[in-house]
């Protein structure tokens, strides 16, 4: 049984100009201790998917369909108060910008202690001792002295370490990390990712790593899901997606990554840009930009299907009976 299972998740935002579907029929699963990378362009729905799992979508956005199961138990329809005990205790979250995710008016020690006391029922003294240990674990120098410091007294990288400690301190089974390094300095990014990787391995925590940085994914994830316009375009083991992508979009995405080992004249690019949610084309959402497009792509929307490789892709090229040279 997978730790997290998402089935046909659909997230909608009612607007004045009609209902926008930000996440459309997304299904995937994460096993215990596994790192699933979720990549895609801005607006592809990857962050919304993460937010929907912990049910923190800002109204009027709402989950319009599908199921989310944590260790075999549905969590998309339980009472808000019950959901509160899932958040933090079973699913931790790391947000993008460490400068804004910490409450500026509370010391970091207090924020850590408060989280642990909510979920683990510790005494003040135990919570404080554990908070210091956590700060040491995430590499805050002089943790015992700095526990009463306030967020503004830390640098961005240090704050993200504190955020990681906050996400992990109640020992959740899963962490949803939403672009945890995007707001950080390039030199700090690698350190923070390495830290997250180490801690999750030590604690056996599974990670849903949302990012648009393929480099981070390639280094960290076990499997990767590529999202495009609210749907999963391709999902599979990270090596196969990077080296042997089957979906033309993934192929294009991987081709556009500069390489240090191979000399290339010009990086490949995918012509055009991702459609806005208001005008997603009929059929496959990628069809206007696809180099291998054929008639069926413009009419019918493909679901994820088995390919000739280890990955699954939402592409008619792999439908049975469809000739590969149809394009």
């Amino acid at each position: 049984m997978p730790l997290l299972e998402v089935r046909n998740l659909r997230v909608e935002f009612p607007t004045r100009r009609g209902v926008l579907t930000a996440v459309d029929d997304v299904s995937f699963s994460i096993d215990e201790g596994e790192v699933l990378g979720v990549v895609g362009e801005s607006g592809a729905g990857k962050s919304i998917t993460g937010t929907a799992i912990i049910r923190l979508i800002e109204p009027p956005g709402r989950i319009a369909g599908g199921e989310v199961l944590l260790a075999g138990r549905r969590i998309d329809n339980i009472a808000p108060e019950e959901m509160r005990h899932v958040r933090g205790k079973q699913i931790g979250a790391i947000f993008q910008d460490p400068l804004t995710t910490l409450n500026p008016l509370y010391s970091i020690g207090r924020q850590l202690a408060e989280t642990m006391q909510t979920h683990l029922g510790l005494s003040d003294r135990d919570a404080r001792a554990r908070a210091i240990r956590w700060l040491e674990d995430v590499g805050i120098p002089g943790a015992a002295q700095r526990i009463d410091a306030y967020p503004h007294q830390f640098s961005g990288g240090m704050r993200q370490r504190v955020v990681i400690a906050l996400a992990l301190c109640a020992e959740p089974k899963l962490v949803i990390a939403d672009e945890p390094t995007t707001a950080l300095d390039v030199s700090i990014q690698a350190q923070v990712i390495a830290l997250l990787k180490r801690l999750c391995r030590e604690h056996g925590t599974a990670v849903m790593l949302v990012t648009h940085d393929m480099g981070v994914i390639a280094e960290t994830a076990d499997r990767v899901a590529v999202m495009y316009a609210g749907r999963i375009a391709e999902i599979g083991p990270v090596r196969d997606v990077v080296k042997g992508a089957r979906h033309p979009y993934t192929e294009g995405l991987m081709g556009s990554i500069p390489s240090l080992t191979h000399r290339v004249e010009r990086l490949r690019q995918i012509d055009g840009s991702m459609p806005r949610l208001t005008d997603i084309p009929r059929g496959c959402a990628f069809n206007p930009r696809c180099t291998k497009v054929f008639d069926r792509c413009r009419i019918e929307r493909p679901d994820l299907m088995a390919t000739d490789g280890p990955t699954r892709a939402a592409c008619w090229l792999y439908a049975k009976g469809e000739a590969r040279d149809a394009a």
Binding site: R84, G88, A93, T100, N103
Partner: peptide, 27 residues
């Protein structure tokens, strides 16, 4: 209530009371 730290406080599973009257009101 729209800020990231309130969302993060909710993501940490803090009680509504703590979020509303501690984190939000104080700010």
């Amino acid at each position: 209530l729209r800020t990231d730290y309130i969302k993060f406080a909710r993501a940490r599973g803090l009680s509504n009371r703590a979020v509303h009257f501690g984190h939000a009101l104080k700010n």
